[in-house]
Computed example of a mutant assay.
Amino acid sequence: MDTQADRYFLVPEEIGPALLRLWNCEPAEERDLRDLGRLKSTGVVVTDCEAPRRNFNPSTIILPSSELTELEPTQRRRIDAARAAAYQLKAWLGIRMRPMFEILADLGPTSALPDSTEAADARLLPIAAAFRATTGIFRQQDQCLPRSIAFKRMCMASGLRVSLVIGVTLDPFSAHAWVQSGGRVLNDTLERVRCFTPIFSA
C-alpha cells in the first residue's frame, strides 16, 4: 500500500524480496536489478527522488481471530453516540481534505500490546455500542475507512491501544478497513474481515 500516493498495488511474489531489500537498504542480489526494473517501468519504484521517504515501514499484522462480544446488552448513552457521530464526521471530512498519509500518521503506531483486560472491555463496549447507534446517520456501505478511523480516535481518547487494519481481496478487487485489539475485531464481524488479507495497520 502506497500511503503517500493513496494507492494499492500487487507485487508479484518473486519480486517481493527484492523490494523489501531495497526498502531496508540491504545489499542487492544479482537478479534484483532486473526485478526492480520491472517495478520501475510501472512507476512503483522511482529513482533520484528528492522528496524524503514518507511511507510507513512494513509492520507485522496480527491476523483476526475473534471479535468483541457483549455478554449483556450495553447501555447506549446519547452523549457517547453524539461523540461517535462527531468523530465520524471529522474523519469523513478529513479523508476529503487531507492526504491519507497525514491522516494515518496522526493515528500513531500499531498497538503491539492488546488491551484485553476486563477494565479495557468496560470502556470498549460503550464505544462499540455508540458506533452501532449511528448506523442510521452514517451508512455502513463503503464508509468503513472513516468509521474505523473515527473508532480508533475515540478509543485513543479513552486511553485504549487499538490498531486500524486495512485489508484487500483480489478477485474481484475490494478493500476494507476495521479496528482490532490484538487479534480481536472491535467494530466489525470476524466472518466479514476474514474475507480480506490484511496489508496495513496503524
Rank of each mutant, 00 (worst) to 15 (best):
Q143L: 11
Q141K: 05
T74A: 15
E102Q: 08
M156S: 13
E14H: 14
N24S: 13
L93V: 09
R96W: 06
Q143W: 07
Q88F: 06
E72N: 07
A91S: 12
I127F: 05
P99C: 01
E26S: 14
Q141S: 12
E29Q: 15
S148G: 06
D142K: 10
A82M: 13
V44R: 04
E29V: 14
I149P: 12
E72C: 09
P52Y: 00
R153E: 13
G108K: 10
T42P: 06
S116N: 15
M156N: 15
Q140N: 14
R147L: 06
I61D: 10
W92Q: 07
E13T: 11
L113F: 06
D32C: 06
A91K: 05
A133D: 15
S148T: 00
R98I: 02
P58D: 13
N24Q: 14
P114L: 06
A81R: 09
P58L: 13
A28Q: 11
E50H: 05
C144E: 07
T47R: 04
L39Q: 00
R123L: 08
S41W: 04
F138T: 04
A120G: 13
D48M: 10
T74N: 00
A91R: 03
S111H: 06
Q140L: 10
R153K: 15
P109I: 04
P64C: 00
A157V: 04
P99G: 07
R78D: 04
D35N: 10
K90T: 05
Y87G: 03
C144K: 03
A105M: 15
T42F: 14
I95H: 05
L22Q: 08
A157H: 09
E118I: 13
R54M: 10
E102R: 09
E50V: 09
A85G: 11
S158A: 15
V45G: 08
P114A: 06
P109W: 01
G16V: 12
D115C: 03
D121H: 15
E26A: 15
L93F: 14
D121L: 15
A112F: 10
S41M: 10
P146N: 10
L107Q: 01
V45M: 10
E118A: 09
E67H: 05
A130T: 07
D121N: 12
P114E: 05
A150K: 01
R54Q: 10
F101M: 13
E13C: 09
D115H: 02
G136D: 04
M154L: 10
I61W: 09
Q141T: 06
E67V: 02
K152G: 03
C49Y: 02
E13M: 03
I127Q: 09
R76M: 14
M154V: 02
V45T: 08
R83A: 13
R77P: 04
L36K: 01
A91Y: 01
R21K: 07
L39M: 05
P99L: 02
S158N: 14
I149Q: 07
